[in-house]
């Protein structure tokens, strides 16, 4: 096998992995702060792309405006969902997190239905941010959109690192994640912090969707698969830290890319599920212990 092909596969694995990493970060932040595994995370990704289709392709808004507006719309939806569904469920006496998990599946179905009413059942694509002329790197090629994806991933990782290490909001989120009662005793409005985590999770999902749609197409029902990939990436990172979520995303992207070497294109998705099964089988006690309490 030529080194060119290996490099090509590695590059494409890393860019796909970067998208999974961003989605995984959304999962982790919501899970750590609120204890909720939000299985509607994939829908935030898809909605980000679809909103962009409306703002950029239909309404012809300039790219940065359409980009920001799409993120804002999805964040607003995340906030709405948290206030109308998640918070009441968390407050309900004896609502175990498993029940809230099922509820998020219901929410994802609901969003899918709404999206199919607004955007129909068509497939959509978006123009690349800055053209689609390939760039050659040591015999392998990359699209400018790939560079955008990697750039945004680095930016997001840095921004989150700053948030959690330098700001009092970030510290309040960490404190809430560790011990919500003790956080409340510090004067932290825990419900507000949970709301912020949903807004952030939704926003990260939307950004992932905006970045990836130019190279993959999108449609109302694509959320389940891409959400699951993000969840696998988060689980590979132990559902624990943001750094590990990013590594999990990259590892999953690479695993998928290299699985295509074995032959079948379809093996790509099967790879994620196999990894998920292995994780659920061997690590469920540690990783998901908190989800059960």
């Amino acid at each position: 096998m030529s080194p060119d092909i290996l490099l090509q596969i590695t590059l494409s694995g890393i860019t796909t992995g970067a998208i999974y990493a961003i989605i995984a970060l959304g999962f982790i932040i919501i899970f750590k702060v609120s204890g909720v595994i939000n299985l509607a995370q994939g829908e935030f990704v898809i909605l980000g792309g679809l909103a962009m289709v409306t703002f950029q392709a239909s309404l012809k808004w300039p790219l940065p405006v359409a980009f920001l507006s799409s993120v804002v719309v999805v964040v607003a939806l995340g906030i709405l969902i948290e206030r109308l569904a998640i918070t009441p469920a968390r407050r309900a006496r004896g609502a175990p997190l498993a029940r809230i998990l099922i509820m998020t599946i219901g929410l994802s179905t609901f969003i899918k239905g709404g999206a199919s009413i607004i955007w129909g059942k068509d497939q959509y694509y978006l123009p690349h941010f800055t053209g689609d002329k390939p760039i050659f790197i040591f015999g392998a090629t990359m699209l400018p959109q790939h560079i955008w994806i990697l750039g945004f991933t680095v930016l997001i990782a840095l921004a989150l690192a700053l948030l959690f290490s330098r700001t009092s909001l970030g510290k309040a989120m960490l404190a809430t994640a560790e011990n919500p009662d003790a956080a409340a005793l510090m004067g932290i409005n825990v419900n507000l912090i949970v709301l912020v985590s949903f807004a952030l999770g939704a926003g990260l999902g939307a950004i992932a969707g905006l970045l990836v749609t130019p190279i993959t197409f999108t449609g109302y029902d694509r959320g389940t698969m891409i959400g699951l990939k993000g969840f696998v990436a988060a689980s590979m990172g132990g559902m624990g830290s943001t750094t590990w979520a990013i590594l999990g995303g990259l590892a999953l992207g690479l695993a998928e890319a290299f699985s295509t070497l074995v032959g079948f294109g379809e093996l790509k998705d099967a790879t994620s599920f196999m990894i998920l099964m292995v994780i659920l089988f061997f690590m469920s006690r540690g990783v998901f212990a908190r989800a059960r309490t």
Binding site: S168, K171, A172, L174, A175, E178, N179, D181, A182, A183, L185, M186, I188
Partner: peptide, 14 residues
């Protein structure tokens, strides 16, 4: 119930 994963100073500042 101190925050074990945060620094002593962070605990105080929280």
């Amino acid at each position: 119930q101190i925050f074990a994963s945060l620094s002593v100073l962070d605990n105080l500042m929280l």
